[in-house]
């Protein structure tokens, strides 16, 4: 039944790899920005993604209950983003700021504690059960299937994946505009390169930190909602499970380099999925049971061979 050229490879390995890569990329942007500008590894980032998914679900549920409408997750995401950004700023003010002048390890531990607090809070509020984000199974987009099928390159892409691709492209373009064209974006890059020098030139570091949380919050939010759209359910460890590949992506691209994070995310996502393709013979090149190991291996090799990452980030 699957006879179109490269059908299996494109639809079952390449496209899922890109979808996963988009989610990793968005999460890694937030991680790399906090790492670059605030100088600590934020372990609570995955939980913020998860929280974003739950808040979006809640807004969808409220709208359905009040007006009988089914909101698209991308619409419900907007008000939820405001809440997540508020939470990011709140945690920064009360949990991270007091440690800013101390050793980095203290902030890292604070973020680790924050991770546990958020996860437990979500379990207490929404319960430990999985929640249904969108039920049923996602059929491939028919227009795309028919058009691509007529040129002998059958593409099976469900609508949810098209939304994820488009959403990621829009966010990355907006981010690049912000970083290159706006004053605050340039200030963010300056602080990332050298905080002391930036401070001397009169950049308001506190404002840059706030901007970092806002940008990181929007990206984390999008990553969380895209992940929930992809797996169609919510569970309380879904953000945490993404944390390691996202760190791998941030390190691969270079700490403090948002484009590096996007590139790293796509590479890690593709590497995880493509490692299970039967490149040689009929069996998977690498047992799919070791997928997570692929991201980890890339991270370790990168740290040994080129600790500053592909895009020349900071090395530690």
């Amino acid at each position: 039944m699957w006879d179109a050229f490269g059908f299996e490879f494109v639809n079952f390995y390449l496209i899922p790899g890109l979808v996963l890569g988009c989610i990793y990329a968005l999460g890694a942007i937030g991680i790399t920005l906090t790492f670059g500008i605030l100088r600590f590894a934020n372990f609570a980032h995955g939980e913020m993604m998860m929280m974003g998914g739950y808040l979006t679900w809640t807004i969808m549920a409220i709208v359905t209950a009040l007006f009988g409408l089914t909101l698209h997750p991308l619409v419900a995401m907007v008000p939820a983003t405001a809440v997540v950004i508020f939470l990011f700023l709140l945690t920064d003010k009360y949990f991270y700021k007091p440690f800013r002048k101390e050793d980095t390890i203290k902030v890292v531990m604070a973020s680790f504690g924050m991770m546990l607090i958020i996860r437990s809070a979500v379990q207490a509020i929404w319960g430990p059960n999985q929640l249904k984000f969108v039920s049923g199974i996602a059929k491939p987009n028919e227009i795309l299937r028919d058009v691509s099928g007529s040129i002998d390159l059958m593409l099976l892409v469900p609508n949810k994946h098209i939304w994820i691709f488009l959403g990621t492209i829009v966010i990355v373009i907006a981010l690049s505009y912000l970083l290159n064209k706006t004053r605050i974006g340039k200030a963010m890059r300056a602080v990332s390169d050298s905080p002391d020098l930036a401070h001397v030139t009169g950049i308001d570091v506190d404002q840059v930190i706030r901007a970092t949380w806002i940008v990181g919050g929007i990206c984390a939010m999008a990553a969380g909602v895209f992940l929930a759209m992809d797996i169609q359910l919510l569970e309380t460890t879904m953000g945490f499970r993404m944390l390691l590949p996202m760190f791998a992506a941030a390190i691969l691209g270079g700490i403090g380099k948002p484009y590096g994070a996007v590139f790293g995310g796509l590479v890690i996502g593709l590497a995880e999925e493509l490692s299970a393709y039967p490149w040689i013979g009929d069996t998977p090149l690498l047992s799919p049971g070791y997928k997570t190991g692929v991201a980890f291996a890339i991270m370790v090799i990168m740290l040994i061979v080129r600790p500053q990452g592909l895009f020349k980030g900071r090395s530690f």
Binding site: P284, P288, G289
Partner: peptide, 15 residues
Amino acid sequence: AHEPSKASYRSEVAT
């Protein structure tokens, strides 16, 4: 074998 709690199992089920 498959690794629990991954976001996608499309490559596994395809193989």
